[in-house]
Design a protein around this nucleic acid. Sequence first.
DNA 1: ATGAAAGCGCTAACAT
DNA 2: ATGTTAGCGCTTTCAT
Lengths: 329, 329
Amino acid sequence: MPRATMEDVARLAGVSRALVSIVYRDAAGASDATRARVLAAGSELGYRPDHRARLLGRTRTRLLGVTFDVRAPFHGDLVEALYSAAEAAGYDLALSAVAPSRDESRAVQSLLDYRCEALILLGPQLSPSALSALAESQPVIAVGRKVRAAGVDVVRTDDTTGSRLAVEHLLALGHSHILHIDGAKSPGAAERRTGYRDAMRKAGLHPLIQPGGRTESDGADAAKTFLNDSPPVTAVTLFNDRLATGFLDTIRQSSIEVPEALSLIGYDNTTIAALPHISLTTIAQNTPALATQAITTAQSRLTNTPTTTTTVIPPTLILRSTTAPVRTK
Amino acid sequence: MPRATMEDVARLAGVSRALVSIVYRDAAGASDATRARVLAAGSELGYRPDHRARLLGRTRTRLLGVTFDVRAPFHGDLVEALYSAAEAAGYDLALSAVAPSRDESRAVQSLLDYRCEALILLGPQLSPSALSALAESQPVIAVGRKVRAAGVDVVRTDDTTGSRLAVEHLLALGHSHILHIDGAKSPGAAERRTGYRDAMRKAGLHPLIQPGGRTESDGADAAKTFLNDSPPVTAVTLFNDRLATGFLDTIRQSSIEVPEALSLIGYDNTTIAALPHISLTTIAQNTPALATQAITTAQSRLTNTPTTTTTVIPPTLILRSTTAPVRTK
DNA sequence: ATGAAAGCGCTAACAT
DNA sequence: ATGTTAGCGCTTTCAT
């Protein structure tokens, strides 16, 4: 049985299609009585407006396109937050996944075919020039990545501050010999390194940086190096949670106890960090704020401002069980 | 600058809109010369057909709606596989995320508004009656969950076989004292328990089952119980990878060595299981097969058959480093 | 092979 | 408050 159309509802309610449209759009121009009658007819027929037709007729689609990496848990969180932020702003979301077999430009193209008003790209990998080209036809908001492309708005976390928070937490616990294991050339690694270094210098301490990486096995490797060199440190800040858990796993197999003898701080607040048996102190990105800001930015680019903006959101420290006051000897 | 329309392309190419339509649909009825001219005009204007309008005009939308849980890594893999399977079958995908703040019925509704021809629900949580109601208006395919709802097609993994594979692998390694730590009332737990039990009995061995759960902390708890009871077993099959990693983490902190003294097998082949420092032997669901079958099922329900089907896909054993031959004493 | 015309299910501007 | 009339950008007969 074919789905009911606006025409059907109008006929059953004994009104014109325009009235039905008004009622379903919650627009002004229909008496309460009519409104009730139309709604009744609609629900009797199980009517739901055809989204495609609705968008076609409208000048503005109120559709925001979102690309996300299907394998990145962090993107999942962002997508969820984007849904509510978009709804609050009266926008709808069109999702397009990026995966190994489906690259970012494919994902973007399909969004364009739906005539999204703006593109919200989570952790975009596209080249600056490709991004700029995209930004010529509609607003493009890059989320969570420090891209520098003309015409592209950016919403991201203040990673320098994040690293600083980690160091300050350790300082407050009495630590003074703090090592940073970095993220090599990973995105955000430079900022996190800088944040660490600045915070240490500001405290009059000597920065100490060991090369790391971004994966669990990089972390395990770093731990082996660490155990071998056994630098005189009581605390370590690590580039991210994956690195930290790999490091932690290996350290726990040694005689060094965490957090009694060694405090550890990760970065990202991934699901893994929150697991009870890991319970990693870490730095969390403010997902709701990132999402809300992304929507707000899209909105304002769509209406007023022609100027591109960069919004930097402060992260927060998540206290768990891998940090403790420095042990008095 | 507004986006080019079919009319624009037609004008530039000096043909009618209908011809442009034919060319862009790759339909018969246009000379090669015209085809080339139209395509040239199109690309000069940067033309891309408006997806919404295209769907509206067409009788069939060739759109398949997919709901997925944004936090489930396994769903991410499935979505990726679905993209390619759908493309091969000439279908397009509309994604709708399920998240804590966005329940499944919301996700489904938005898909319906897009006039998807069929619904592919990954691990649906909806009640059988709700699913059946949905199935009255269009084909509904439940993937990865053993739902029993009238009119709903099911595509899932053969969990009984999965458990059996795990046991048989251990038998082949010479183990005979094999424990199963189950998933309590988690979806799939009953099948996996049955598979274990049957395989054990078939080998003339005595099944031994310890209550478990589905999370890492359940696994850690199970490990404590295990260490305490120290049952005389040389191998353990666990409900899933999360349970197994929690178990493994705790066991590794004891004096029992894995896999030398104890072999472990998980289930699901999650990303975590594949990490080098975990390297968990596990049972993998055949994601591409599940995806392809889901699309095939949707397709045949859309064309011929009115009968609902259940397809059960065999899983496979993934050999890693947590299983080894039984130690000869 | 090509074009004219109608229509998909809505929205929106204009009448009444 | 309600109805009429055009579109929105395509697809799809049906002529030519």
